[in-house]
Computed example of a mutant assay.
Amino acid sequence: MAFTRTERGTLGVIAGAHAVSHIHLLVIPPLFPLLRDLLGVGFLELGFALTVANIISAATQAAVGMMVDRLGPRRVLMAGLLLGGSAFVLLGLAPSYPMLLVASAMYGLANAVYHPADYAILGATMAEERVGRAFSFHTFAGYVGGAVSPALMLGAAYALGVPGALFLAGALGPLAALPLLRGALAERPQPRPARVAGAPRLLNGTVLALTGFFILIALFNSGIQNFAVPAWAMLDGLSLAAGNTALTAWLAMSAAGVLLGGVVADRTRRHGLVAAGGFLAAGLLLLVAGFAALPPVALALVMGASGFLSGMIMPSRDMLVRAAAPPGQAGAVFGVVSTGFNLGGMIGPLGYGWLLDRGQPSMMFAAAAGCVGLAVAMALWQEHRASARRGALVAAE
């Protein structure tokens, strides 16, 4: 069934905000060489600024999720967009390393807003039979934002200078927040979270297991995105051009897989089985890409198939989280489980980098595949629990 006009409007606003959030994620890294000269620092100091943003996001994501449930997701999302935009405008006005750290902290806090607020809004505004597709478009918009950001920032930097590029990135935040000022999101009334019993109900075994699931997904993605290309070069002498072509195939097909995954998520209630099956196949293909000496074209095809399958599970992953949220606590639950992205993003580069430094590129692929195996086991466990709950409800009727 097609989205209603109101649903399309809401989905456009939220998808646009998510695209901006992913653009903001990649404002600083493409400018590293230019910022190094402008600020007079090294890559270590620039990398530390990204670490600051991840630490702040991880530390505040759960609390921000609770704010979403208390204050309303629209208000919190507006605040996040304005805060994220202000961070880059301030850095453009006063480019210095201390200001870069301040801007990173501000954006880290803003980044904690998007997942809990976006998913709370979509869950409250979309009809049940279209939620999966709404989640898929939301995720796809993030992929698009991340894809255009490097070219956008480098082009703006060369045309306007680094401060001008930062002003442009900052202006996207308020622009994305403008439609939210009208308060036009058709949110259905949601139950208020319990003030006393909320915390124990929120931090249950299912939510903690899903947080672990998100950590494993982040570890898997971190290995591919950041270290697959140098690992292939060490293993097979693959050129950087061929390695990056295979990585691009993985990223592009991940985005395509997300769209199909939304249709699948709307047509089944067994989201754990979808996540487990797709992730298992993606992990097996990664092992082939890591251990078989494939020619460049075959490698790109294998990585494209792996990316498609890993993207396809994303809407089902989000539906698992939605199903685990107690009434009135969708924002808080998405806030808690999304800390898994930050934790995996902090742990993964250290572990994979250590393996490559020790001359063990094949172990990088094995470690990423191991994360897949654990994630598959968690998804199957979640499916077993969900089936038991459905069986209990049928028996009670």
Rank of each mutant, 00 (worst) to 15 (best):
M1K: 13
F3L: 13
F3P: 02
T4E: 03
G16I: 11
G16M: 02
P29G: 08
L38V: 09
L38P: 04
L39A: 02
V41Q: 09
E45R: 00
V52R: 13
V64E: 10
D69I: 14
G72A: 03
M78C: 08
M78R: 15
L82V: 12
G92K: 02
P95M: 12
S96T: 14
Y97D: 09
A105I: 08
L109I: 13
A117I: 07
D118V: 03
A120M: 08
I121M: 15
G123N: 06
T125L: 14
L152K: 05
G161D: 11
F167H: 11
F167A: 05
L168A: 09
L168D: 00
A171T: 12
P174E: 10
P179W: 02
A194M: 03
G198N: 02
P200N: 14
T211I: 00
I215G: 05
L216K: 01
G223N: 05
A231H: 11
W232I: 05
L235Q: 14
G243E: 10
N244D: 14
T245K: 08
A252C: 12
L260K: 01
L260P: 00
G262L: 06
G278L: 11
F279H: 12
V288W: 06
A289R: 01
A289H: 04
M303Q: 11
S306C: 07
S310A: 15
G311S: 12
L320I: 09
L320D: 06
R322W: 11
A323K: 13
A325P: 03
N342K: 02
I347N: 01
L355P: 14
L355C: 09
L356A: 10
Q360F: 10
P361N: 06
F365G: 07
F365R: 02
A367G: 09
G373N: 04
L374A: 15
V376F: 05
L380H: 07
G391T: 05
